[in-house]
């Protein structure tokens, strides 16, 4: 229990740091942020500028602004979008489920591809399969995601007409009633299997695109971790006991290899979250990533601040979960 508490305490400085960076985003603008924001609209009077400055609290001292910003976040009052004139919270909550669904799908895809490929590569070390796998993984981390997404659309949607290349669900399939906002969950709840299958098909390409760099990375980590573990005496001892090779690899080797894999994958979760923006754009996915890009382009700073913060908090949360998982997997540090 102590260890968990300690770990939680460690995140406090990070959370403060996140709030500082997010807060400072608006003030990094060269010149007057209000003028830039309003400059988009065309001609504005000095009065309008003052009005807006007051609305954003920019007329108050910086310290005061920071504390009221933090207080607002904690209270759940995330401000108002300058463009849409609706609460930022509503805007974000509307977009969040689509992103969560896509991100989870991508994580699942990357683990399903990455771990078995890494294990296979390590077990068949020096074989052509290992060499090919390693090279493919290197290509995977060298590839721009938007290019992969376009290529997948070109091949599977344009060329082969196999999978849809955009949006969450075809317009001719009635969507299930919104409960969680996650279409897969909602369609199961409604017992609507047409919608479920449709959502799966729509998820396939974006999840693959979003998960590709992560699966390449997972593969590389799994491979090197497995190579390290396979050399250990307990693996030989398991063989000496007469354990089947498959069980040696999975029960004895992989369970140990997973310990470092969890940490590395969690640390690199940032690239997967960042990829949201790209993938959602390519596949017209109505998620948070698109909202960030659109808000940046329209200088809708309150929305930008909160969404960027949500991404950072997600990263922190995922690393916390990974640490707990690490403790769970490794009896030597278990609480």
């Amino acid at each position: 229990m102590d260890k968990i508490l300690q770990r939680l305490l460690h995140t406090i400085p990070v959370l403060i740091g996140i709030s500082l960076i997010v807060f400072s985003l608006m003030h990094l603008t060269p010149g007057d942020p209000v003028e830039i924001m309003l400059g988009e609209v065309g001609y504005v009077s000095q009065e309008d500028i003052e009005l807006m400055r007051a609305e954003l609290g920019l007329d108050r001292p910086l310290i005061e602004q920071y504390f009221s910003f933090v207080a607002g976040i904690l209270r759940g009052d995330w401000g108002t979008s300058l463009r849409a004139r609706v609460p930022v919270k509503a805007l974000i909550l509307e977009r969040l489920p689509a992103t969560i669904e896509l991100t989870i799908a991508a994580i699942v895809v990357s683990l399903i591809i990455g771990i078995p490929a890494g294990v296979l590569s390590a077990v068949r070390r020096y074989s052509w399969l290992d060499k090919l796998g390693t090279l493919v993984a290197l290509v995977g981390i060298s590839m721009p995601q938007f290019w992969l997404g376009l290529t997948l659309i070109l091949v599977f949607s344009v060329g082969l007409h196999l999978l849809p290349g955009g949006v969450r669900l075809a317009f001719d399939i009635p969507a299930p009633p919104t409960v969680t906002g996650l279409l897969l969950v909602d369609s199961i709840l409604a017992g609507n299997w047409t919608a479920f299958w449709g959502t799966m098909r729509h998820l396939a390409l974006p999840a693959l695109t979003l998960g590709a760099p992560m699966s390449a990375l997972t593969m590389r980590v799994t491979r090197s971790s497995m190579l390290e573990v396979i050399r250990q005496d307990y693996v030989t001892f398991a063989r000496a006991k007469g354990v089947k090779e498959m069980a040696v690899v999975i029960k004895h080797a992989l369970r140990n290899a997973l310990i470092p894999i969890v940490t590395v994958v969690a640390l690199n979760m940032g690239s997967l979250l960042g990829g949201n923006m790209i993938v959602e754009r390519i596949f017209s996915w109505p998620g948070l990533g698109q909202l960030v890009v659109d808000s940046i382009r329209t200088y809708d700073y309150p929305v930008v601040q909160v969404s960027v913060m949500i991404y950072a908090l997600t990263y922190v949360a995922m690393n916390l979960i990974a640490d707990l998982l690490y403790m769970r997997l490794n009896p030597r540090v278990r609480i």
Partner: peptide
């Protein structure tokens, strides 16, 4: 394991830690 069994030098590295 059944007919011929084997034990090794370092029991810490030979037993599976997890």
């Amino acid at each position: 394991g059944k007919e011929i069994a084997m034990i090794f030098q370092d029991p810490l590295s030979t037993l599976n830690p997890v």
